[in-house]
Amino acid sequence: MATDQLLLEVKDLKTYFFLEEGTVRAVDGVDMVIRRGQALGVVGESGCGKSVTARSILRIVPRPGRIVQGEITLHRMRESKNGRTVTEAVRLTDLDPMGVEMRSIRGAEIALVPQEPMMSLSPVHTLGNQIIEAIMLHQRVTKAEARERAIHMLDLVGMPRPSRTIDRYPHELSGGMRQRGMIAMALCCHPSLLIADEPTTALDVTTEAQILKLIRGLRQELGMAIMYITHNLGVVAQTTEDVIVMYMGKVVEEADVDSLFHDPKHPYTRALLRSIPRLGQRTRERQRLESIRGSVPDPYALPKGCSFHPRCAQAIRGVCDREEPPYVEVGPAHKVRCVLYC
């Protein structure tokens, strides 16, 4: 049963960027599993490789980046000849990124809601044009039917007056409306996995709350899995069930939301949690918000051993700066990449 529910497996994924200045190991051996209908949060600072992981899954890593190693497998449902639905494993890493098969998966099975709704819609095409295009790419429908579906989808994401908004250009819409439009576009082909890459970072707090609520509601309604990428731990707590913490291209800790927030193991996770303010924190004790000391290391020259050790308060000399830390299981479905728990 458990394997039946598998949706996406990522094994030892390595995506490197080959630049003049050197090679950036944006994703350096990431493993993850997403089950059907699961909401997975991916947390980390900017530049930790979370967005590149998402783009690797979609096979749209921009040049000069390249997947150099690893497997990504999608278990997709298919209608077999006798009318039963069967799951079929497709290894995305073996496909031509611009080929027919990968394109039929992109947008249909796995969809993306990008970071900046302001910039993510073409300024010279109407919203409808861009959504209808997505529908007609993956479904055999006439243009009129596609338009109907687009309007329906816009209605579903709470767009006001969808039959009129559909003919608007992006610059005529507010940020929140554009992001609703982007979500409608992502959902119009009923993907089994929605990758939301910091979908609310560019929005104000009220709009953010609305969009988060919308995504939560839609997940329940449509039963899809969500990979929610963010640097905002608060958003993770609200939206997801399981969390992955990434640092410098590696997964350093994974757990369910409760364990992660109440019993964080990795020094980096702990530091992250200490850096967010909490209601009811007593200021009289002169407790300051802590920041993580030091800065993100130069991506061209990663430190040897554990890449967090120069900033880690608990680093052990001769160990952390020498050896790659092991990935240890510390509880049910709670894993951490740190020597402290060996």
């Binding site: 130069d298 020259a301 430190p303 050790h309 608990q314 680093a315 052990i316 000399r317 700066d321 402290l340």
Partner: peptide, 27 residues
């Protein structure tokens, strides 16, 4: 290996050097 998280709270000398060295290059 079973050092408790609290025990190693002081930053080892050689790590500081590593940090300094990196700075020197970028400086």
């Amino acid at each position: 290996m079973a050092t408790s998280p609290e025990a190693g709270s002081s930053l080892p000398q050689n790590d500081l050097e590593v940090a300094e060295e990196l700075k020197g290059e970028e400086e």
